[in-house]
Computed example of a mutant assay.
Amino acid sequence: MGAPAPVVLIDGRSGAGKTSLTRLLLERWPLEASPQLLALDSTYPGWDGLDAAVDDVTQHVLLPHAGGQPGQWRRWDWTVGEYAEAHGVDPDLPLVVEGSGILTPVTAGLADVRVWVDSPAASRRERALERDGDTYRPHWERWARQEDRHLERDDPAAHATRVVAVP
């Protein structure tokens, strides 16, 4: 059995530019096999679910992938407030995981490329609220507190192989 397919983790606070960077990476993917994309926005179980999603993806996607085993993640249905369908992850294909909270001391050891996207708070807030508007506005501070805990506990920038600054 060969080495596991490469894994890229892209982390940053809300509105930092993770999704835009991920889109560029996928457009310019340098390997023959196209990567699978897992956006954590699809897995967070509600507005208090940053840690739960990262734990779930670590246990059911990243660890199996590293061991050459199929993984699986569940989509969170934000409308009904519960998990919906499951999606498989092929260990033979590259994997890109993008989302706030994904770069931790544990996940860093399971990834080949680890990116931290950094951006000033005012720019991030403007982009995020422009993108998600009134749906996100009442939850901005609540989500930011979870990101604060992630930064304090996990120091994601210290585990990054690349840091991308977005104005």
Rank of each mutant, 00 (worst) to 15 (best):
Q146N: 06
D11H: 09
L9W: 01
D112Y: 07
Q146S: 13
P156D: 04
L24M: 05
T19Q: 08
T107G: 10
S100Y: 03
S20E: 11
R75Y: 09
R28T: 15
L129F: 01
T161Y: 00
P30S: 08
V57H: 11
D112H: 15
T107I: 07
M1Y: 11
L63C: 07
G46Y: 01
T58N: 02
R137H: 07
H87K: 05
R13T: 02
H139W: 10
E130I: 03
R74L: 15
L95N: 12
G12F: 14
G68V: 10
E126T: 12
P6L: 09
R131W: 00
A66I: 01
V97R: 01
L62W: 09
P167R: 14
W47C: 06
A3T: 11
S42Y: 00
L24S: 12
V117Q: 11
G109F: 04
A39S: 12
M1V: 14
R23D: 13
W140G: 09
A39N: 11
G88T: 12
R142L: 13
D48F: 01
S14M: 13
L151H: 12
P30C: 05
E126V: 09
A16P: 01
A108R: 12
L37T: 03
Q36M: 04
A122W: 00
S14E: 07
A111C: 06
S123W: 00
L25G: 13
G46L: 13
L103P: 06
P64M: 08
V8T: 14
A158W: 03
A86Q: 14
V117L: 07
V166L: 02
L38V: 15
P156L: 08
E147S: 04
A39T: 03
D134W: 12
L31F: 11
S34H: 05
R28L: 08
D48S: 15
L24I: 00
R124V: 09
M1N: 02
A16W: 11
R125C: 10
D92H: 15
R114H: 09
W47L: 06
P4N: 01
Y44C: 07
T43A: 15
D90H: 02
P120Q: 00
L62N: 06
R127A: 14
E130W: 00
D77C: 10
W78F: 13
G12H: 05
V7Y: 02
T104Q: 07
G109T: 10
W73V: 10
